[in-house]
Design a protein around this nucleic acid. Structure first.
Lengths: 327, 327
DNA sequence: CCGCTGGGGGACAACGTTGTCATAGTGGCC
DNA sequence: GGCCACTATGACAACGTTGTCCCCCAGCGG
């Protein structure tokens, strides 16, 4: 800006006025300044501007588990969409389910003075955010609640979803329904297990430990587990999968096998309808989740200081006929 | 920092020293400062720090078409990974194939003084970046080349891929091979069309206009096109799909149809192997693309100022048996 | 001719840091 | 006791902006 001022033969304040479209600059002066800006390729430094103005940095931080997972990339897209409408950039990072990494990312974002934080929490300890929240950075938790702070939270109806999955399978005559879930210290995994249990009880088929296998799961562990489930004295005839990755592992393990158990997966995924058999899922909308959370965040930025809210988004069973009809 | 200094009864410079682990602070003083920091929830302002130090802002900008597309979210993940190793945050935005939006995003990132830019170019005009590049911001183009600036570029072998696809189909006896591609003003779409054409010529089956349908495509247009192709005097017996979205549209349109043409899709996608029939694809690796581009960017940041490079990543045909065997 | 008005423009401080340099105190050595 | 070296600390400027306030001068009315 200094250089521009010198080249145009004006003070830097005048350059600032031109750059900001402030009134009170003679057209001919403005033209000279613009020419200088063009010639020097000047671009105003947003950091300095925000520092001086003490205003918003125009950024929001997004911490999620893995941008590479289509579910989270859908969330990211929705967040970006709304942020854009409100003139914000999104800075994002993947925690890979590691609480330490989550914390590192969140605090780094705070150091950058993001206007707000959206977090898919990895662990159960979030008191590290208290000073930041007290200092005025709004935080919205997404997909899972925070461990030990009270804050806005957007969840999906995990319990209702798995209850519905089990009910659906039981209604088709299944009595040996298995559940493969993610690591039980992950909130959603645990909730879905609870829903599974409740569904079993409601359906009158009872809850049996031997039908449950919690993760972490990879392709091999899923294959092994399926083998076990199918060789029980009373084999499982149906499976509820705790998330999209597990569903895919199951599909891969079952590929080509003759006697396939019925399957209902939590999380919808592309092409689920084109598989044979198509896969029945508990669907919930990544963009709805991202949108709800971002809306909440912006409401806080707009001055809403009502007590923290917890929003639970509905899920819906999408029956596609993945073997529910009990042979 | 001022407040911390006051509370600890020291100068702000001493606080700065403590925060930065600089030597020459008495342990007892440091302790007082740390206590004050803790009490006030102080966190150093990175913008101010970077402004003062004139050093890197620790961010890189990523402009892509749509984070929601699994291909690009894979790229994003890879970029994030490497950026993290080099202590950078990633700011990303989706251009939605709109050159204006791309420009807006890229220049906004420049205003934020990102250390470097990774761009999946939407249009053909990138001279707007010249001043920024001259000012020292390295730019790497990804997946497609820039229109009118010379800069580092990482591409995949689009032509080789489609040549291989056509060759593969022709080897299985197909002589009426159609091509459904994206809008021809998109570099990759055009390249793949060229590859298709060359493949046809090499296979000695000739290039026929009536077998080509360039986009933009949506589910309906793909269905209509397929209908046309199958009702030609000499119907298409095989299809090459220009990208993952088109492949999926085709699969959906063909679902349940009896007489399916063979299909080879450009871009691999999850579950392609589990469909029936499985889908043969031209695979290329989103993370490899992201990694190569980010490595190139960091090489520039490390001072490499050799002439701009163009890296072309190989693709490979993954035969899965999607009806190539001509009945 | 004087004073007032208002448009155009500049000087300067401040945002929150850190680099540079100065200074006060302390202990050791001759 | 005087001098030096060294440690711990602080004062101040500067990074690139913008907000506040002030100044200059042309034009106008009296």
């Amino acid at each position: 800006m200094n250089d521009v001022a010198r080249l145009a033969g004006v003070s830097i304040k005048t350059v600032s006025r031109v750059v900001n479209d402030e009134p009170g600059v003679h057209p001919s002066t403005a033209e000279r300044v613009l020419a200088a800006i063009d010639q020097l390729g000047f671009r105003r430094n947003l950091s300095a501007r925000n520092l001086r103005r003490g205003s918003s940095t125009g950024t929001i931080g997004l911490v999620l588990e893995d941008v590479g997972n289509p579910f989270y990339s859908g969330v990211t897209r929705a967040v970006e969409e709304i942020a854009r409408l409100r003139g914000r950039q999104v800075i994002s990072g993947s925690s890979d389910e590691d609480p330490g990494r989550e914390r590192e990312l969140a605090l780094e974002f705070c150091s950058r003075r993001v206007d707000g934080l959206l977090i898919v929490p990895a662990g159960l300890q979030h008191s590290y955010l208290v000073p930041e929240m007290r200092a005025g950075t709004p935080v919205v938790f997404l997909d899972r609640p925070a461990g030990d702070v009270v804050a806005d939270t957007v969840l999906v109806d995990n319990i209702g979803g798995t209850v519905e999955a089990v009910t659906h399978l039981a209604a088709h005559g299944h009595r040996r329904i298995a559940f493969l879930g993610d690591a039980p210290d992950i909130f959603t995994a645990n909730e879905r297990l609870r829903g599974y249990r409740e569904g079993c009880v409601r359906a009158g088929i009872g809850y049996h430990e031997d039908l449950v296998a919690m993760g972490p799961h990879d392709e091999n562990s899923v294959a092994t587990t399926l083998h076990r489930l199918q060789n029980l004295r009373e084999p499982a005839t149906a499976i509820v999968a705790g998330n999209n990755r597990i569903t895919v592992h199951i599909l891969r393990a079952l590929a080509g096998s003759a006697d396939r158990p019925a399957l209902v997966g939590f999380d919808d995924f592309e092409l689920a309808d084109l598989l044979s058999p198509p896969v029945t899922v508990i669907a919930h909308d990544a963009s709805a989740l991202g949108k709800a959370a971002t809306d909440l965040l912006f409401a806080r930025l707009d001055g809403d200081n009502s007590p923290p809210r917890r929003v639970v988004l509905p899920v819906r069973l999408v029956p596609r006929g993945s073997g529910e009809v009990h042979a």
